[in-house]
């Protein structure tokens, strides 16, 4: 009641304010800085062609038919080329689970946006590597 309770309220408010001012912001300066994604993040895939045996279990497991396999295209003895269609992929993780030869993994890369729809179909050249061309905008590079 009265003076002291008002003082208490003001103290509460100031405490809250000061704490917020010196806290690290919740947001990120996105294209230049990104949050650390957990290890299990189901982002885009990476295909290790050395281990692949062209068994096509990932293709059969996919519920949305986002994976296409080309068994003719061989880089090693018995591997195959995979085409991932990220316009369809729902990142459910069934293909990675189905792979028994450690040839397919999710990566914590989730910013997949492209300027062209066709670029979202990741062919064997893009799906086997995590490198990508850096984007430049007004002289600043990000990604």
């Amino acid at each position: 009641m009265g003076f002291f309770s008002v003082l208490g309220d003001i103290y509460q408010i100031l405490k809250h304010t000061f704490r917020q001012v010196f806290m690290r912001p919740f947001t990120y300066f996105f294209p230049f800085e990104d949050r650390i994604y957990p290890e299990r993040t189901r982002g885009r895939h990476i295909h290790v062609r050395k281990n692949c045996t062209a068994c096509a279990q990932c293709v059969r497991a996919c519920p949305v038919v986002a994976i296409r396999i080309d068994k003719e295209d061989k880089m090693y003895e018995k591997d195959a080329a995979l085409y991932f269609d990220y316009t369809r992929c729902i990142f459910c993780g069934l293909c990675v689970e189905a792979c028994r030869f450690d040839a397919l993994f999710h990566t914590p890369v989730v910013d997949l946006s492209e300027g062209d729809r066709d670029d979202l179909v990741y062919g064997p050249d893009k799906i086997t590597t995590l490198d990508r061309d850096p984007l430049e905008w007004r002289g600043r590079r990000f990604r």
């Binding site: 096509a56 293709v59 059969r60 038919v65 994976i67 296409r68 396999i69 080309d70 068994k71």
Partner: peptide
């Protein structure tokens, strides 16, 4: 028809 695209 999508299933025809998978290659299997």
């Amino acid at each position: 028809s999508r299933l025809d695209e998978t290659g299997i």
